[in-house]
Design a protein around this nucleic acid. Structure first.
Lengths: 161, 161
DNA sequence: ATGGTTATGTTTCCCCGGAAACATAACCAT
DNA sequence: ATGGTTATGTTTCCGGGGAAACATAACCAT
């Protein structure tokens, strides 16, 4: 396996491990909530006027999937929807008080993760960060061009190689 | 968003884009085959004596999922199973002639991807590669320790943050 | 203004994979 | 050797998400 593949594979495995750990910890502190639900709550908590489309694009899933998920969260009383006077098409979401509590717990968990990995990131130099970011951005732009050229739809992933 | 998050997010997006592009191209040259099937074929083509457990570990999915997938591939005549005289427990897989053809097509596709991205990787210096690999390996070891400490099961991912 | 086009959201049907219970074979400690 | 433990594979049940058809609202060109 050459270096290119090792880098890509390495990051894939890294992400898998992070997700596994996240799910595991979530079972402790956020019992009863699926990770997809928590991510949705997190996004709505961070972004005013979230709607189905924005959530779908951000999570790389279909609008249909988000539509069902938000309906579930509304039924559970974690989020609520609202509209604006001048727009009868778009439906926005915000957290209820209950939702804010869950979001708070999740934020604490995030801090815990950062603390956990601090030791690793402290060893990374600015140059290393910039080098990685420049690679990511360059590669990303390259793929964007390809995606555009072929007219590919980027609404589905969540499985890797 | 700090640099740590940007690197992780950046790679997540990168992987998503690669997967989308892969799926799109596969629809052209490997019509009728799901990407999970093709990956399975690829693995069996590369590794002698593949079995359900090894495939599951490699793909981060449950043995049950692989069990169903391989059954489907056998029914389609793409792979076949065999056992060894001295082991009545483990069941191995190999490609049939038809499977080899598909694998060949897939390999060509891989080369095409490498060619497509050559321009990007040519710009990456050895130092950059080594820097990224060292980061990945360090972080990975760190998470492994955490995973071991907590006794987390790494058999499920395929969705990211 | 109005008819075609695009954007947004919903619903139905279906497939894939996880969880868990199960069956069987291999291993191992005594 | 044998009974408990572990490894491997399978099956059933269920939930989540994709695809596609659909409904409705907004946009836009004429």
């Amino acid at each position: 396996m050459n270096k290119e593949e090792r880098v890509i594979m390495g990051f894939r495995d890294l992400l898998n491990k992070m997700v596994s750990l996240n799910k595991f910890k979530m079972k402790d502190s956020l019992k009863g909530y699926k990770s997809s639900e928590v991510h949705c709550i997190e996004y709505i908590g961070r972004n005013v006027d979230s709607n189905v489309t924005k959530l779908a694009e951000s999570f790389y899933v279909t609008r249909g999937a988000i539509s069902k998920l938000t309906k579930k969260l509304i039924k559970k009383g974690i989020i609520e929807s609202y509209q604006k006077q001048d727009n009868k098409k778009e439906i926005y979401f915000r957290l209820t008080e209950q939702g804010k509590v869950i979001n708070k717990v999740h934020e604490e968990l995030h801090k815990e993760f950062q603390e956990r990995d601090k030791a690793v990131f402290e060893q990374v130099t600015e140059e290393q960060f910039d080098s990685m970011l420049s690679f990511v951005e360059k590669y990303s732009r390259h793929l964007d061009a390809e995606i555009k050229k072929l007219g590919v739809d980027i609404t589905n992933p969540n499985d890797f190689e």
